[in-house]
Structure formats: structure tokens, C-alpha cells
Write a protein that binds this DNA or RNA. Structure first.
Lengths: 195, 195
DNA sequence: AAGTTAACTGAACATTTGTTCAGATCAAAG
DNA sequence: CTTTGATCTGAACAAATGTTCAGTTAACTT
């Protein structure tokens, strides 16, 4: 029978994805070679193909896993409540989650054009589902009369762009804690969409 | 003496930059080859080197020209006034300008990591100058007592991220005109930073 | 008409690319 | 100890990369 313990595949496998994640985030998908990834893992390039059918799948798997986890974690944190309270939850969740996974976020927003058309469709659908959760909250707030919504799709995109932008400048060693940043952004979001 | 009229260099030169702009925006710097650019121009790859010392300069020149024009155009539009009025000017200018140059904006925000360190420093400085203009307005509004500013740098980055994000989803054929979008964003920005 | 030279071609260059695969390695199973 | 098979090496592949350059072309000047 096959080896079960002592196998390296359960160690090397994740390390391949980890290395790809870090390198793609740092230099971009197209600028990273399979040999660079292999070197980071401590293995020859050919060995990578025990863990991925090709380079494209590496990118796709990273993106899909990220979007999937984003949706799952968010749905765990989801509590019923007023639109205002739900918007606060969404805002704080989004910022915290994105600050914790800056590499994944960077890739998910920057490497969309390096996906094959079929893979792009899948990721785009997941992203759309996430955006729709915010849009629903805004629409509900409009019904409640607490939010001023002219075109819910635009306000959704505006808020998400503002929140996600935090990853481009935030540094953990900086002068502000994640919680302080969270508070400042929540103030701005609340005011921006309120009547 | 050298040929003056009938020369193609004044035609081909800009065409090289144009092709590079479009291709870099569509597929990313690292994913575009000099031969693809040459094909778009209708010339052999070697001919490109009459117009650029190397591929990196193509990217750098595009970015520098964009940031330079952004700063120049903005300084032309700059009028004295209250912080609120200046913020409105900045918001409307930023959206209009960015909608008109989506390719340039895309490159300027996505290809920073493909610049050499020295080139990155130059572009980063120009970008910083632009961001500072917004930060100055916010700080002035705080002094006037009309803006609620906790940390002017954060509010600056948040507003810029929100505004620039418009380029990711806006389509000229869409259901909203640029002017309508401008108005919606201005509403949100004003409320977000107001006391 | 002859000469000049900017503009371009087309081939060549050394590397690097993603991917494949025969064979070595070696821990576990029988 | 022998067999098994997952895991990995190391070399090989064709294609593509950025860049260079000797030579061709043709629009200009004189």
C-alpha cells in the first residue's frame, strides 16, 4: 500500500499555495515564475506539478479560496438588526478581515485580468455575491428611511472601494491601531450614506 | 541635412506610447511583450527602440506623463474659496478626469510594483503631491470648523480610494451619465467629512 | 541626379518561460 | 527483506522574452 504517514504532500501542498500567495502579491502573477515559487518552497520546479495542474490553477485556487472564506466568515458574523447596525457590522468586519489578509485581498483585486475567461466568471460571481450583501443593507436602510440612496449600486461600489482601500496604506507598525482605523472608517461610512 | 518633413518619428513615437498604454491597461505590464506592442503599431519589435531605451521606460513615461498632467490640469482648475467649495471642486475634477482617462489611471494604480525602485520613488512623490492637495483642503475645513477630521491622512486616503474606484465599474454606455455620477459621489464625500 | 541619413526590417543573441517525464529516493506495507 | 508507490530530481522541450545590430529603404537636401 501507499505511504500514509511520513508523506510530505500534506506539508508541501500548502507551502506551494503559501509561496504563490506571497510572491503573486509582491510581484504580480505574470512576473512570478514557477521556478521562483519552487525555490521558495525548497523544491525543484517539476515537483510543483504534484500539487497543481498548472500556474493558472494556482492563481484561481488562491482567489476562489479567498472569496469563499470571505463569504463564509461573513455569513458566520451576520446578525439580524437594523440597517444601521448591519452596516456597522459589515464595515467593521470588512476592514478587520481585509487588514488580516492583505496579500489575498491584493491578489483578488489586482490579478482578475490574469484569469482565464471561465475562471474570471467564477470569481466575479463570488465577488458579486459579497457586494450584494452590502447593497441589500443599503436598500433596507433606504426603506427604513435612515439611508439616503440615489442609486444603490453606486453607493455600494463607493463604500466598498473606500473600505478596501485601507489595505493600500495601513501598516501594523503605523501610528494607528486596527480598531482606531475601524472607528474612523465607520464614522465616514455612516455619515456618507445617512440622510 | 536630416529629413524634417515626411519623417515618421513624430507619428510612430506617440503611437508606441498609445499602444503600450492600451495593452498595459488591458493585460498588465509584465504580460505584454515588446512584439505585441510593435504589432499594434504596425512595425517590427526592433523599431520600438528608436523611441524608448527599454520596456521599463515605456511604463515609467506613461505613469510620469499621467501624474504630471493630473497635477497640471488640477492646478489650472484650482480656485480659491471655502474648504467646502474647494472639496467640491476637487471631487468633481477627480471623477471627471479619471473617467476620461481610465487606462492611465488603471496603470498608475496597478503597475507601481513593476517600476524599478528609482522610478517608483519619482512616481510616488508625484502621487503624494496630489494626495496632499486633498489633505490640505480637509485640514483647512477642520480649521474652519466645517469638517470632522480625526486623522487627516486617513480621511484623505479614504476619499481618494472611494473616488478612484469609480473607474472600476463606470461604463460610458451605462445607465448614468458622468455628471450624475459626479453628483452622487459629491453628496457622499461631503457628508462623510462634514461635522 | 547624387548624396545623406532617419526609419525600419529581419535575423540573431542569450535567457527565461511553463510544462513533461524517465528515473532516483526512500518510508511504509507485506 | 522485498515490494510498492508517493515524492521529488534533473534534464529536456519548444516557445517566448528583451534587446542588439548590420543592412535595406526611401524621403529629404543639395
Amino acid at each position: 500500500m501507499a505511504r500514509t504517514t511520513g508523506s510530505h504532500s500534506d506539508i508541501t501542498g500548502p507551502r506551494v499555495l503559501d509561496a504563490a500567495l506571497r510572491l503573486f502579491a509582491r510581484h504580480g502573477y505574470a512576473a512570478v515564475s514557477m521556478r521562483q515559487i519552487a525555490k521558495e518552497v525548497g523544491v525543484q520546479a517539476g515537483a510543483l506539478y504534484n500539487y497543481t495542474p498548472d500556474k493558472q490553477s494556482l492563481l484561481f485556487d488562491l482567489m476562489k479560496r479567498h472569496m469563499q472564506e470571505l463569504l463564509d466568515t461573513r455569513s458566520d458574523h451576520c446578525r439580524p438588526g437594523t440597517a444601521l447596525k448591519q452596516l456597522e457590522d459589515f464595515t467593521r468586519f470588512h476592514i478587520r478581515y481585509h487588514l488580516d489578509r492583505s496579500d489575498e485581498v491584493f491578489i483578488a483585486y489586482m490579478e482578475l485580468r490574469n484569469l482565464t475567461p471561465e475562471n474570471f466568471t467564477v470569481i466575479e460571481a463570488l465577488r458579486r455575491r459579497y457586494e450584494n450583501e452590502l447593497e441589500t443593507i443599503l436598500q433596507q436602510g433606504a426603506v427604513e428611511g435612515v439611508f439616503a440612496i440615489t442609486d444603490s449600486r453606486i453607493e455600494t461600489m463607493a463604500v466598498i472601494a473606500m473600505l478596501t482601500g485601507v489595505t493600500t496604506w495601513y501598516r501594523a507598525e503605523g501610528r494607528l491601531s486596527a480598531t482606531e482605523v475601524e472607528g474612523i472608517y465607520w464614522d465616514m461610512v455612516r455619515k456618507a450614506v445617512s440622510v
